[in-house]
């Protein structure tokens, strides 16, 4: 069955809304077929990924709508993947909801840079530029103030003792590498993350 673009948009909207039916119980024949149609290349892009939870490394297939908000519409196990062969546990099967939240409800993910000033009692939304510039200034100020070139014994250490970091096994290899290089270039030695605990 070939869907019109308009029909698809309506479907996307339907998928994004928790309606009285919501695909529940009522396996309306056209609607049922439409969910399948949405996975086709005319309507969505298919990409592969590896699960973000435990380190089994299960493969998943992500379908992302080519129109509308261009958000993920379905995420399920990759049947070609040799480790999981399409299978997923409860967590892996929920990655759609991690990314997209519950249809019809606000996505609980952080979507703005938030700032809490010293002694402040609430969060304020800020721009990326504002926040990164201010953090950069903090880094420089405190690195310069706490940098130690020689320790108490007079040995060269070239390190920054006033800053510390934890994280993260949730990042990609490339991000992990870049992050540790950044921290070490600043002189940090208190660099830790999930693997320690």
């Amino acid at each position: 069955m070939k869907l019109s673009r308009r029909g698809f948009l309506k479907l996307s909207a339907a998928a994004a809304l928790s309606t009285a039916f919501g695909g529940i119980g009522f396996a309306l024949k056209p609607a049922a077929l439409d969910r399948i149609a949405m996975l086709k290349p005319d309507w969505s892009k298919q990409t592969t990924t590896a699960c973000c939870y435990c380190a089994v490394g299960c493969g998943l297939i992500v379908n992302t709508a080519l129109s509308g908000a261009k958000r993920a519409i379905n995420i399920e196990g990759d049947p070609d993947h040799p480790i999981n062969e399409g299978a997923l546990c409860a967590k892996g099967a929920s990655i759609y909801q991690l990314a997209e939240g519950t249809p019809g409800q606000p996505n609980p993910r952080l979507q703005k840079v938030m700032y809490r000033k010293p002694y402040g009692t609430k969060w304020e939304a800020k721009s990326w530029d504002w926040a990164l510039e201010r953090i950069a200034k903090n880094i420089k100020r405190d690195r310069d103030a706490t940098f130690v070139t020689k320790n108490a014994k007079g040995q060269t250490v070239n390190r920054c003792d006033g800053l510390a970091s934890v994280g993260s096994a949730a990042m990609d290899n490339e991000e992990c590498w870049a992050y540790q290089a950044f921290l070490r270039s600043l002189g940090l030695v208190y660099i830790e993350h999930q693997a320690r605990i």
Binding site: G57, K112, Y115, R116, T121, W123
Partner: peptide
């Protein structure tokens, strides 16, 4: 009101929104 710490909360993407490699167990 008694806590001096300035806090920046920066929103990052989820795994399916980015490209890169991870190494399994």
């Amino acid at each position: 009101k008694k806590i001096k710490t300035e806090v920046f909360m920066l929103p990052c993407s989820v795994s399916v929104e980015k490209e890169g490699s991870i190494t399994n167990s």
